[in-house]
């Protein structure tokens, strides 16, 4: 998995935080709660899946720092 997935992890985490915050907010409605919970559960599963598979991309830069330019 590429470095781009990390962006989506950060975004998914932010989305999850927003969903969790909704449960504590004045906007909370019991009728919508189950739907919101299902979304949170799905996001958590996606984050878990992404974290299990993604890898870092390591590149040594092609600059010789021993030379003063």
């Amino acid at each position: 998995m590429s470095a781009k997935n990390s962006v989506s992890i950060a975004e998914k985490t932010a989305q999850l935080d927003a969903l969790v915050a909704w449960f504590d907010s004045d906007e909370f409605e019991l009728e919508k709660a189950l739907d919101m919970f299902t979304k949170a559960e799905k996001l958590a599963a996606e984050i878990e899946q992404d974290l299990a598979t993604m890898k870092n991309n390591i590149e040594v830069v092609k600059v010789r720092f021993s030379e003063n330019k």
Partner: peptide, 9 residues
């Protein structure tokens, strides 16, 4: 994972 790591040797 998912991090772009640039290394200066």
């Amino acid at each position: 994972g998912g991090v772009q790591i640039d290394v200066a040797h």
